[in-house]
């Protein structure tokens, strides 16, 4: 089932009243499948945040179609099922962390006040900012703001969670935790769609990818599919006569052949790793390419 489907989305902006319109999104087509984590990649200014704002109805679109949960247009019942963390989380800084969650929760969730309060506290504990629940938001650090932003996106237990740069501003521990949180949400049956500049996080957490380049979709499909397209290297670590060795394979097929060969030679396969630079290489290759027609389906 498609949780989010964007078809032929186009968006133009006027910089000033008398200037001509500038095309920001040329033609965006992609879909996000249920119970997956889909990464949304693109260089600065490629149109990621504009696409997200169009998807969420914050800015009107010029043409195209955006539907949620198999064909439903954006409406208030649909918004109840969506959680969103903006790129730079600005919140009401006169509220405390707990008050903020209760405010957003009461707007979106159908829970009783007591249940909502316990869910808010639970989320604050999980994100490690429970001790700061009674502190005003204006006293929070950037990382704490990101965490409280994450909590407000999840307070109403949404089915689709859209995160714009969720790892930005987080320390390494928090990044690991947010990554685990995204994985656990997918396991719970939620759908995650998140934009990021951190390719390592996307590779680690996502099964699917949408790559934007200059307002066009340069790639939409599985992470593996993209890696296969650039024939990413795989590192096979094996043991032979108590000695550790490494061999590289340029494609998945070659990797299989190598493993078969090594096993026939009674070698023990210790690990098979994707070359860490491979998604980065793939991303660079895709975004440097002038041919943007090589899309694949999910």
């Amino acid at each position: 089932m498609s949780v989010l489907e964007v078809k032929n989305l186009k968006k133009r902006f006027k910089e000033s009243l008398f200037s001509s319109e500038k095309k920001v999104l040329h033609q965006i087509d992609f879909s996000v499948s249920e119970t997956t984590a889909t990464g949304f990649l693109g260089a600065n200014g490629s149109g990621k945040t504009t696409t997200l704002k169009c998807v969420l109805g914050l800015i009107p679109i010029n043409s195209g179609e955006i539907s949620f949960f198999t064909g439903k247009p954006l409406s208030r019942p649909v918004l109840k099922k969506i959680g969103f963390l903006p790129e730079q989380p600005y919140f009401y800084d006169y509220l405390t962390g707990e008050e903020l969650l209760l405010f957003y929760g009461r707007l979106s969730a159908s829970l009783t006040f007591t249940d909502l309060k316990s869910r808010a506290r639970d989320l604050l504990k999980k994100l490690g900012i429970y001790e700061a629940k009674d502190r005003k938001i204006r006293t929070y650090s950037k990382g704490m703001l990101q965490k409280v932003g994450m909590a407000q996106a999840l307070i109403h237990d949404p089915e689709l969670v859209i995160l714009d740069e969720p790892m930005a501003g987080l320390d390494p521990d928090s990044r690991v935790y947010v990554g685990e949180l995204i994985q656990s949400l997918v396991k719970q049956g939620k759908t995650i769609f998140f934009s990021s500049h951190l390719l390592y996080d996307v590779e680690r957490l996502c099964s699917n990818l949408v790559v934007l380049k200059e307002g066009r979709v340069a790639y939409a499909g599985s992470v593996q599919g993209l890696l296969d397209r650039i024939k990413g290297r795989r590192q096979i670590i094996y043991a032979e006569k108590d000695q550790k060795h490494t061999v590289f394979a340029d494609s998945l097929e070659e990797c299989q052949r190598e493993i078969d060969r090594l096993r026939k030679q009674s070698c023990v396969i210790l690990d098979v790793q994707l070359d860490k630079k491979s998604l980065e290489q793939a991303f660079v290759k895709i975004t440097e390419s002038h041919d943007l027609t090589g899309k694949t389906g999910n």
Binding site: K53, L56, G57, L58, R76, P77, L79, K80, I82, F84, P86, Q88, P89, Y90, F91, Y92, Y104, L107, S108, G149, Q152
Partner: peptide, 14 residues
């Protein structure tokens, strides 16, 4: 100006 509207208007509120 402070962009708090972004977080607010993605909630079910007109």
């Amino acid at each position: 100006e402070k962009k708090t509207a972004i977080t607010l208007f993605v909630k079910p509120i007109s």
